[in-house]
Design a binder for these strands. Structure first.
Ligand SMILES: NC(=O)c1ccc[n+]([C@@H]2O[C@H](COP(=O)([O-])OP(=O)(O)OC[C@H]3O[C@@H](n4cnc5c(N)ncnc54)[C@H](O)[C@@H]3O)[C@@H](O)[C@H]2O)c1
Ligand SMILES: NC(=O)c1ccc[n+]([C@@H]2O[C@H](COP(=O)([O-])OP(=O)(O)OC[C@H]3O[C@@H](n4cnc5c(N)ncnc54)[C@H](O)[C@@H]3O)[C@@H](O)[C@H]2O)c1
Lengths: 211, 211
DNA sequence: AATTACTTGTGCAAACAATCACATAGCTGG
DNA sequence: CCAGCTATGTGATTGTTTGCACAAGTAATT
């Protein structure tokens, strides 16, 4: 299983497949063909088969894929057969929505620590149970609580400094909501969730179409 | 200007360039070379030049790009030289964060109408000024208010139905926050903002790295 | 056992995207 | 006005991703 040979787009699609399969499982669908799964996820059927083929042979020819089994395999591939411990930095409007979101917990992602600088916020307990730590406590808390993933929801101006703090505390993976490109050392990963870029894409398409 | 020949990744990067240039403008930087801009955005310098070359010659050889001028051109390309009118459907945790976010307005994106089904919410006025309409009023309000873009922040179970409503009301472009693939008729666009997919990517990389 | 119907897994070609490398053009200073 | 310097714009090249088309495997039916 060559890590480097797998398209990153494949990983993203695996995530979509996993979600679709989860849904099918709830609907008590036992078997699904690549056609149907592809349609549900908005991709080409051959793409589905090829994506899966990177990791093994999970289907039965002439039949399809067993939903439960395939879901299990995909989750294993993605590393979703365990829980992930996250730290959230910046409890503003967005941060509050994130910690309140119960879907994350269901998917195995848990905010086990939250940080802010605002003295009015530090020390308070959130409805979801976490106490807001001061950002200065980040290094110790991150180690104590065994954090895997850092989530940045601070203003853009503070995001790069926050990333550095997280890296120095030993966190290898960051989910960034601030609208800028975070610079990271080799071997560390950032994923950006970028609302404005998506809106700009829509604006571009609407503009082009009108021409 | 051949719409179809431009890589979609180029459009996404133009959005990043635009943001970086905006920042440089505030720092009173007048001229920037593709090297520097590329570094700021985490891409290859040749990539920057090629992306821009799709739309014209905006630089001066031996010098670089005039920040103000390039920003103007990129904004024109993306359609950011106007205001975009958006409707938000679903005023939950996430929806509230979105309407409260003042950056959108700065960038030219404005929530001019918001909808929900919850009778406790309908009729109330948000701190940002909008009155929450019942979803049944969507068709008329969308027409009255000349909405360009629909934003879905309902539970996943309601997202496809919401998309249909928006499409029927004449909206061509949708930003979807619900964790599922929305099916749209030909010629309509959806962009998904998908937190969990991003987290799954991080989980995968952390898992692989550990092997 | 042979036939039919079906769906996976995959070699290959085509489409798409990123990168290199350099000719080209503008600026500056003498 | 020429030489030297610099950074753009772009043809050529390399690399990556997608999609087609079909051989291979499975099940059901006769
Ligand atoms: N709200 C949205 O819908 C939205 C949309 C797109 C992007 N974003 C981005 O997400 C980020 C957060 O947005 P928001 O609306 O929640 O902003 P916000 O201003 O409501 O919250 C920011 C929070 O970060 C805290 N903070 C500031 N500096 C900090 C530091 N150094 N360490 C720790 N905490 C710090 C502040 O005290 C505040 O609580 C911003 O970068 C924003 O651009 C938000
Ligand atoms: N909160 C987050 O951080 C977060 C993160 C990732 C994804 N999401 C997704 O974003 C969506 C919204 O999340 P949330 O946390 O705000 O949920 P929420 O439950 O807080 O809010 C949903 C809102 O939608 C309204 N609603 C329900 N059906 C509707 C309909 N048919 N028409 C109009 N409004 C309707 C509800 O009344 C409620 O106000 C969900 O799909 C969620 O999975 C949220």
């Amino acid at each position: 299983m060559k890590f480097s040979k797998i398209p990153s787009a494949t990983i993203t699609r695996l995530s979509l497949y996993s979600r679709a399969l989860e849904e099918l499982l709830l609907e008590h669908v036992n078997i699904i063909a690549s056609d149907k799964l592809a349609q549900k996820c908005g991709v080409n059927p051959a793409q589905v088969r090829k994506d899966l083929a990177y990791f093994g042979e999970f289907g039965v020819r002439g039949v399809g894929y067993f939903v439960k089994e395939l879901l299990f395999e995909i989750k294993k591939i993605l590393g979703l057969n365990r829980r992930w411990r996250m730290a959230l930095v910046g409890i503003g409007n967005l941060g509050l929505a994130l910690v309140a979101h119960e879907n994350f917990v269901k998917q195995g992602y848990e905010f086990v620590a939250v940080f802010d600088v605002d003295p009015k916020k530090v020390g308070r307990r959130l409805p979801s149970g976490q106490i807001i730590h001061h950002i200065d406590e980040l290094p110790t808390v991150v180690k104590e609580k065994n954090i895997d993933i850092g989530v940045i929801a601070t203003p853009a101006s503070q995001a790069q400094a926050t990333a550095r703090l997280l890296v120095e505390a030993g966190i290898k993976a960051i989910l960034n909501f601030a609208p800028l490109q975070i610079q990271m050392p080799e071997g560390y990963i950032v994923e950006n969730v970028d609302f404005t870029v998506k809106l700009d894409n829509l604006a571009y398409h609407l503009t082009m179409e009108a021409v």
